[in-house]
Amino acid sequence: MTAIALRGVTVALGGRTVVEGVDAAVASGEWLALIGPNGAGKTTLLRAIAGLVPFEGEIELDGRSVRLLGRGELARLLALVPQEPSTPPWMTVAEYVLLGRTPHLGILAAEGRRDREAAAEALARLDLVGYEGRRLATLSGGEKQRAVVARALAQEARIVLLDEPTASLDIGHGQQALELLDALRLESGLTLVAAMHDLTLAAQYADRMLLLDGGRLVAEGRPEDVLTAERIAARYEAAVEVVQVGGSVAVVPRRGARASASDAADAGV
């Protein structure tokens, strides 16, 4: 079943076309990685799917056009974890995770028992039991990231969009975060769409990849098919080797053979 369908999605921001004519489908329960160099349009595409920027074309979630979904309805179907979420320092972890219940509450309502249970379950699954009363200001980067994911889980949406979920995490915490997301996906049948810069991690966790460049979809498929040294050289202007490591491909940067002639000149090669 198709969780997300994109047809000819075009987004213009401030008169500049940032995403152009993207067609893609994400199957229910799938992990899709959005990759591409800085400015490729990954974040903008995620924001369009989340209904936060106007777009042309069609975006459907579970077969329903996002244009016809109300704000609350959309937020019950889909949760967005931004790259730099705001974490008000005075807020406690419990309060923060409970904010995820907003789309399930009337505008004037307070959280009920059902909401507290959903938040408690999200906290338990992110190993944050005992953190309920801690202020966000006192959390480490990794703990904060878990609180943000817990808030998204408390939203009880079947689709979770993640913008650079490992950007602020070290290699260990990044790995743990992705393992956790994968486990949550398998347990609850979540559909994950994650914009990712680390191509090796993306290859290890994603079922499929979309490679964006200049707002256009330039490659699509399984990680081992999308990630070739030539393509990465062309799109990222990076010199890399793609190697097989434990059943997955890894992208390893290489020195001394810059892809771009001007860079090579700068480097004095």
């Binding site: 704000r71 309805e73 949760a79 904010l99 509450l105 505008i107 004037l108």
Partner: peptide, 27 residues
């Protein structure tokens, strides 16, 4: 006072509040 819970949501910023289903402009 009726909207006081939503004010807490607004402290996350317009975009995150919107992605939590809040009509930020109206509120």
């Amino acid at each position: 006072l009726a909207l006081r819970r939503v004010v807490d949501v607004l402290t996350l910023g317009d975009e995150e509040a919107a992605s939590l289903g809040v009509h930020v402009g109206r509120v």
